[in-house]
Design a protein around this nucleic acid. Sequence first.
DNA 1: GCCGTGTTATTTTTT
DNA 2: ATAACACGGC
Length: 733
Amino acid sequence: MDILAELNPAQKEAVEAISGPVLILAGPGSGKTRVITQRIAYLIRVCGVSPYRIMAVTFTNKAAREMGDRLFGKSEKDPATPLLDWSKRGKVTLGTFHAICARILRQDGRAIGVDRGFVIYDREDQLSLVKRSIQGAGFDPKQYVPSAILSAISNAKSKMLAPSDYIERGSGYFDEVVGRVYEQYQQLLEQSNALDFDDLLLRVVQLFSTNAEVLTKYQNRYLHIMVDEFQDTNLVQYQLVKQIGDKYRNICVVGDPDQSIYSWRSADLRNILSFEKDYPEAKVVLLEQNYRSTKTILETASGIISANEQRKPKELWTNNEPGERITVIGTYNEQEEAQFVVSEVERLVEQGRARLSDCAAMYRTNAQSRALEEAFIRYGTPYRLVAGTRFYERREVKDIIAYLRLIQNPCDGVGLMRIINTPQRGIGQSSLSQLAAWARSRGVSQFEALRLLASIAEDEKPFDIRTTRVLVGFSDMTKELIQRGQELNLVELFDLVIARTGYKEYLLAMSDGEERWENVLELGTVARQYADMGYGEGLAAFLEGVTLVSDVDGYDETEGAVTLITLHQAKGLEFPVVFIVGLEDGILPHIRSFDDPAQMEEERRLCYVGVTRAKKLVYLVYAFRRNMMGSSTANSPSRFLQDIPRHLISYDDQYRGEESQLATGAYSWDSTPTISVDLPELKAGDCVCHSQFGRGTVVSCHPVGDDSEVVVAFRGVGVKKLLLSFAHLEKVE
DNA sequence: GCCGTGTTATTTTTT
DNA sequence: ATAACACGGC
């Protein structure tokens, strides 16, 4: 197969420009992922570059996996003809910055004192460490918001400021506090043999700048480096690319300034400018032809983004059909908004114009998903929430992970504190502070203190008999787990942890215990994938995997359900039908960005990203009233709507400012059920089956208009209110 | 030390 | 509206 066939001239240019730095500015839907994959294939197949010498950095794990699938096939016997042999998969360095850096540090971190067994702290772990650091630095933990301090610390790290730099540069009281806490925080991290997300990157930069030998090794290896979503990289990431690519300078970065939406995570658009400055010989390729959207959608998006002032104008164009006009619609409140989305989806599906999986509803904040979910449940329309309570953030999942983490790395202080009394074993606050004080007086970590406690003679124990007994009991248990861990594979170890801690019984005693236990079992399924790796190796790989996952990683577009997703998560995805809800001033743009023009522009880009996800149909929905945190507020339609040329909108008489037209019922949709199968007669106590929720028992059933509202308690799911005509309930005997 | 109740902050987005 | 958190009684 000719790799260059079916590429347009600009894409071809981007693929063929293999020597020297390249900057690809790629508009939405311009085939940039395709260009990157073809480029890799071209390097290997046509130019004879060893796959081992290529690094490709993606924004999410999912993007990495997909790129791998496209290049090498999904499995050894993938029927689709991939561009390259399956055997070459795994030879290309392919992953997120964080995953790649974790790998480098396991390999070579020793050179700067990073122990091979390090664990990675996620945001929750970080927050708990910040709380401890606030205290450790001598401040009142109630006086400061840990998340604010954490984000200041993370910001500092993204700018490569060490605690001492930060304290030196800081001005004012808050900076002083942050600096001191940062100092403590970093110290605690080191004691715990742990790295946070920022450290993963930072330590590699440090490794490379202090250790010429290691740097040279990587520089010699990576003949070609490619970075996707370059507009969302931060300073450290840029530094990293520069370091590794410095020898061959075959660096290809791909991005779109208009889709930069992560400045709050310290992503810095200036990286694109710096690139042009640092690599003046760089070839710049513009990908401006859009293959994704209709003309109407593209023009809508252009209308929205053109209003940004800090921006280089560019000309996107498409050969696609003009398509249908977009729909702008005002509803009374978020319930009506959600109802509109569901009924419109149902209408499109009935008319055969879309499948459920073709549709996505996007929103600015996670909280907005609730109203949508409720409507989808009531109508019985299958949906898929991309980030509910995230699986790996669930308490029970994190507990088990903490046990496993402690086995890999007994220094893990945050993990230890998490599980030392979970399940409860009588180690309360006072025991803990005694232990902490004793550990400090001995100059050892708390975990070491436990070991020490177990070993000293009965009559010399520093605590009372009861406290000592529980602490030593815990110490013995972890000791056993760590020892047995040496000879067990991950699944056996997993089971042993649960058996030895009584975790199952602990969960099942809770009211929602079954559901939680299922989550633990689910985690066990994940662990199974690592069972055939050697001890340590499997455990480390598992822990790394579960910490670096993102929500979109588990997202599967083939599922027969509507996607509910934040605008941020939607980046890089596409759908035939897109609903953006909450198009109101205060939501999108978000109220927190009102006072900063730069942030305001980012909100606009976010809106742009949403619209450009769509292939065929776009619905922009806003609500007149919205309940937020308990109270109801009235919002005006988003200012972004005003920048859409009128002739592109099919239903635009709503938001011209006349409040009377915003009343409920200003639009209509078919509220009568169109499916006229024989509905089952249901009464309390009946067993029913639902396509999504499975088996359940009817709690109550009463008529509402010519329909019935059924309340069902689903096993392991909870109690749901459903409309009989929509829910597709089947009666089970 | 545990468990219940009342109080409070929380919500912008996440590798 | 909800969940984490603090406080007080057992």
